[in-house]
Nucleic acid binder design. Structure first.
Lengths: 320, 320
DNA sequence: CTGTTAGCGCCTTCAT
DNA sequence: ATGAAGGCGCTAACAG
């Protein structure tokens, strides 16, 4: 492992000069620059990143917080982040939190202690107040509407989006509309609940807590939804399902139970994941890979916190 | 950001002593140890990892090479790796390669240049010769049978496993058996092909290249399989599908086309992913999360390369 | 048991 | 345009 000193010796210059060409600094004669270059290729020289990091106080590491990594939603997000990271020569440090606040704080602390340069939080359980304690230590970017806050964000307008979905179902003639979601709390969940209640009020429909299905994250969670549906005397005729993979699960079990889609039950998915296309699920397209890309770019952008809204598109297929 | 010197000063000791308590070295009086400890908590001291890494020549970073991260197979593997990584205070550096050799070499070079401590290669396209060029630089662990090679590995016996699946189908009365797989080449693919051909020979069945379906990676790839199936004059009556997610896709499309499972077509999945349970897919259980765990442990184990076989279990459900 | 000191490899003033 | 030298924060002989 040749180091900067060796290169300097070989090229007959000082380490400073080597460092200069390494960092594309001006004021190096073309001659010496060339000598250094060839010495570097000869030794197949690679700078020791730890030394660079120590010296510069930066790491080229970006932390990524997700509750799970093995889930299509976060998988797509990660994919977008990872692709952009390689392009920019950054590495990712993964924090799989399972929504444990402790894990999130660990990630935040890595930022505080300069072990990573920035932190992308794809989903969180900790309060905004905790996040804000750490904004001073480095860029934090959230995947939720954080306008007005001191962190960057890429977000979709959950309220609008959810309202749009509900309205679409309403216009298709549905009165009893329910929805499934993963978490009861969480910023996005609350916005959706708000949109839901607001919608009911406008439509003059009663609020039936039974029509909300929580803990829906994976394909198999669709089972429970269908099971509960079967037991209800007056089940909803339409469901907004905040994840295509769950929608796919519901669809599959409905077929097993001979519930006709969309006649007996209309289903509106979320995300437009590949499975939605395959199973002809009507859904709201959320460009997750693209969002991941933007999240990364925001993380390495050292200017002021910025906020960017991403728009969703309703994709009509055969489940509504 | 207090550093080791500050702590030393506060505690009235030398930096060495601080370093000693930091690294749990013996020969520090309980008294001073305590003084150092309290100074550390008072400043909320965190060692600068870059400095530690530079000094020790290690990074506490483990590279993980996967072709894709957004796929249940690699997702589960990653999950296992990630869980064990946090336990051991290591961070993961992700390399999503899309099976581009260049990306794999990049990862290998990061090992060479000490930017990561070890490298886990979950799946590869580059030749073993290339891998072996890098073994001198640090632990490399593969998720395939690498016995006899100079790298560690966790693996399942692909040949045996595939034979077992084929034999199971045969015993269920199937003569025309095909299989679907992602890659044509690749170590595992070749072993499976070998097992397949050997099986046919033993059973005295002809080899029909049409019965092999390549490029099957995702749910939606099941479509193409079914489409081809429909066009065949003498389609296979059973399929070994080397990924449950693909099996699920095939199952779904068969239902759409009114192909009865298992009557018209028997399906044997692979991995026992959650979807297999839900859709009642008969499958071979491969403990991917556990494999991920073991891969990580091997990566940080500095002793000689070791090899561990992991065993699979056939899970009978309703698609055969 | 404890402290002094020389690195680890690179960057960056400061002189020249 | 170039180089000498100090420093980033920590570890690990070595000496005592």
């Amino acid at each position: 492992m040749a180091n900067i000193k060796d290169i300097a010796k070989m090229a007959g210059v000082s380490v400073t000069t080597v460092s200069r060409v390494l960092n594309n600094h001006p004021y190096v004669s073309e001659e010496k620059r060339e000598a250094v270059r060839s010495a570097m290729v000869e030794c197949n020289y690679q700078p020791n990143l730890n030394a660079v990091h120590l010296s510069k106080g930066e790491t080229l590491l970006i932390g990524v917080v997700t509750p799970f990594i093995n889930h299509p939603y976060f998988g797509q997000l990660l994919e977008g982040i990872a692709n952009e990271a390689v392009k920019n020569n950054y590495k990712l440090v993964l924090f799989q939190t399972n929504y444990e606040e402790e894990r999130e704080v660990e990630a935040l602390q890595m930022l505080q202690f300069k072990q990573i340069d920035a932190l992308i939080i794809c989903s969180r359980i900790c309060g905004m107040d905790i996040i804000e304690e750490f904004v001073a230590y480095g860029p934090i970017v959230l995947c939720e509407d954080a306008r007005g806050k001191n962190v960057s964000s890429i977000f979709i307008d959950q309220y609008q989006t959810f309202s749009k979905a509900l309205m679409y179902l309403h216009n298709k003639g549905h009165q009893r509309i329910g929805y499934s979601i993963f978490r009861k709390s969480g910023t996005n969940s609350k916005l959706r609940e708000k949109a839901y209640k607001e919608f009911l009020r406008e439509m003059n429909e009663p609020f039936n807590p039974e029509y909300i299905f929580y803990d829906c994250l994976k394909f198999e969670d669709g089972v429970h939804v269908v099971e509960r549906l079967l037991k209800m005397s007056s089940p909803p005729t339409a469901l907004v399902v905040t994840s295509d993979i769950v929608a796919a699960g519901i669809l599959t079990f409905c077929k097993e139970k001979e519930i006709q889609i969309p006649e007996d039950l209309a289903i509106m998915g979320f995300d437009n994941q590949p499975i939605a296309k395959i199973m002809h699920i009507t859904t709201l397209e959320i460009p997750l890979v693209e969002i991941g890309r933007k999240l990364f770019l925001q993380a390495i952008d050292n200017s002021e916190p910025s906020h960017e809204e991403v728009f969703v598109k309703l994709i009509e297929r055969e489940t509504v």
